[in-house]
Structure formats: C-alpha cells, structure tokens
Write a protein that binds this DNA or RNA. Structure first.
Length: 253
DNA sequence: ATGGCTACGGAGCGTAGA
C-alpha cells in the first residue's frame, strides 16, 4: 500500500458533516470553510427543501452544489469546487443519499437512518438500508470513490463511551452490516480518531460521552492515494454547534 | 436518564434525533 504523501500530486480535501440544519449552521459552516477550504463538502441533515437551501453562501465560496433535500428532516448535499457530473439521488424514498463524479473521483454523501431502537421496524429498515448501501458500493469497487456521512453505527466497542453498550448504533447486526462494507474492500479511515457525535442532552460533549458514527469509506483506489484523516472536534465547541463534528479526508491526486 | 437538548413546523407542543 503506497500512501503518496511523498509522491507528488495536488492535495484534495473532503469534509463530511452532519450539520443538523444547514440554515441553523451557516456561521459554523463559514468558519470551517474558511479554516480548511476543502474541495468538497458532503453534508447530511440539511433539513431544508431544495428551494430554501442557502445556496448563495456556497456559490460565494466557489462551490457547485447538488442537492437532495426534503422539508424539515433528512437532506444531503454534495458541494464541490469542481464540476459536478453524473449526479444521482434516487437511492431511497427519503433524502439520505446523493452521489456524483467530480474532480476525477466519485463521491457520495450518506445519511443512514438512526433506527430508533433495536428490534423495531425502524431498526430493520436501517439494516435494509445498510445492506442496500453495501450493494451500491459494489458499483464503485474499481473506481476512486469516497463515501462520507453519518452511518449511525459505532463499528467497534471503542467507538462508544459506555463499556459493553450494545444498544442502537452498536448492535451486532448493525456492526455486521458495516463490516460487510469493509469486507468488499472499503477502508474506514478514521478508526483511531475518536468520537464524532455527542448528545446535546446531559452535556455529552463536556464529559466526552460520544460515539463514532460519522465515517469515510474509501475504495482501494482511493485508499492508494489517501494521505490523512481526522475528526474536527473543535467545531463541537462553536456557538450553537451541531451535535456532530465534521470529519476530514485528504487525498493526493 | 424512563428524555434532562436542539431544530423543525407552524404557531401548541409533538416529533425526531441516536
């Protein structure tokens, strides 16, 4: 495996972020955009229909934007400094998935259903969604492909602050569904980078009571040019923060 | 924590988030 930090080529940065309402998070978005100026923003939980999306802020910063929104809840977006092609967002009935080809790579922004509670109907819907997502990713196995999003699963025990927790987001079947994505060759690059979500309730962040729910999955060809990744925890300390931190992935292409 | 935040819709609180 060659990590081409020393092989030349330009740096390409992607940030994925569950913003929990883009309209409520514009100031925070502008701070992150200014500090990191990524090539891509992959957004989840924009919580706004497309006609009311605050496009002007993105266009002012030079981003092209592809939207799949809905009123009040869900909502995903791909924002790119490069031209957006082959945009598809008909993966499911809700606004939870959008993909595109841009800047020479395929990208997807993914918002997996939370499942509410183990062994309920929403939980089985979540498992179905994850299996279907794995099948979708098969199409990108031989491409340079980066999927970022809120997968709503903590893949390993260390990804939850509660020892031995096996409730929603950490049940065996959810973890197996995520494992199935890894087993078709996709790398979870933030495995050692800590939590990405802290509950608003109970002052979760100040106690570091978190879960690692937000992930990047890189195809083999994307992982070949992977340089670095991280969780941008500082955004959780902003005024009026999202309950999720942004996550960063850097490639050398 | 059996709900203690936060945001939304729509004008009360119910719903959703995970």
């Amino acid at each position: 495996m060659i990590h081409k930090s020393d092989v030349g080529g330009a740096a390409m940065r992607l940030i994925s972020w569950n913003v929990n309402s883009i309209r409520a998070r514009i100031e925070n978005f502008l701070k992150i955009a200014k500090e990191y100026s990524p090539d891509f923003f992959l957004l989840q939980e924009t919580r706004v229909e497309d006609t009311l999306f605050p496009l002007e802020y993105f266009e002012d910063l030079g981003y092209n934007v592809a939207l799949k929104g809905q009123k009040g809840r869900n909502g995903v977006a791909i924002c790119s400094r490069h031209m957006l092609e082959e945009v598809k967002s008909d993966f499911c009935d809700e606004a939870r998935y959008i993909e595109a080809f841009s800047g020479g790579i395929f990208v997807a922004s993914v918002y997996v259903p939370n499942g509410q509670e183990v062994n309920t109907a929403p939980y089985y819907h979540k498992l179905d969604f994850l299996q279907k997502l794995r099948d979708k990713f098969l199409n990108f196995q031989n491409e340079i492909f980066v999927a970022g999003g809120d997968f709503n699963v903590a893949p390993h025990a260390k990804d939850v602050y509660i020892a031995d927790y096996d409730g929603i987001a950490a049940s065996l079947r959810e973890r197996d569904a995520i494992k199935a994505i890894r087993e078709i060759g996709f790398q979870d690059i933030l495995q050692d980078k800590g939590y990405t979500w802290w509950d608003y309730r109970h002052r979760g962040f100040s106690k570091d009571h978190g879960f690692r729910l937000d992930h990047f999955y890189l195809s083999r060809k994307a992982y070949d040019v992977f340089v670095d990744g991280n969780v941008l925890r500082s955004a959780r300390e902003f005024e009026r923060p999202s309950d999720h931190a942004p996550i960063l992935c850097e490639l050398r292409i």
